[in-house]
Amino acid sequence: MLRWFRLLLLSGCVCIALPAWAADAARGREIAHSQEKGNCLACHRMPRDAGAETAANMGPVLENLTARYPDRAALRARVWDGSRFNADTIMPPYGRHRILTEEEIDHVVEYLRGL
């Protein structure tokens, strides 16, 4: 009985932890490119995306990200708060400072994984 209860509780937690949205690369692209939202092109070039118009070189070129970050959560963490990896980073902490919502970050990560 107790065991069933624990299982129920556990599955409940899993449900809550799962986002209510499906990550969408096209929306992620819009957010990443928009100057009002991600403004990633201010710093990063994305040579795999022909429409990503920028001459920026403040951050590394973004490409091959799925190969370099097989773990999606690790890639997401870099966008959420880069200062956890480099305390002196200039990359804005998109999650920690709520520049983007959790949902928006998921879309952006989906887009990044295609680069």
Partner: peptide
């Protein structure tokens, strides 16, 4: 600011680099 930049981040650390265009 929300972007978490100092003047020095741009005009010392990144002087000479390109921000967008």
């Amino acid at each position: 600011g929300q972007m978490n930049f100092s003047c020095a981040n741009c005009h010392i650390d990144n002087a000479g680099r390109v921000m967008r265009m």
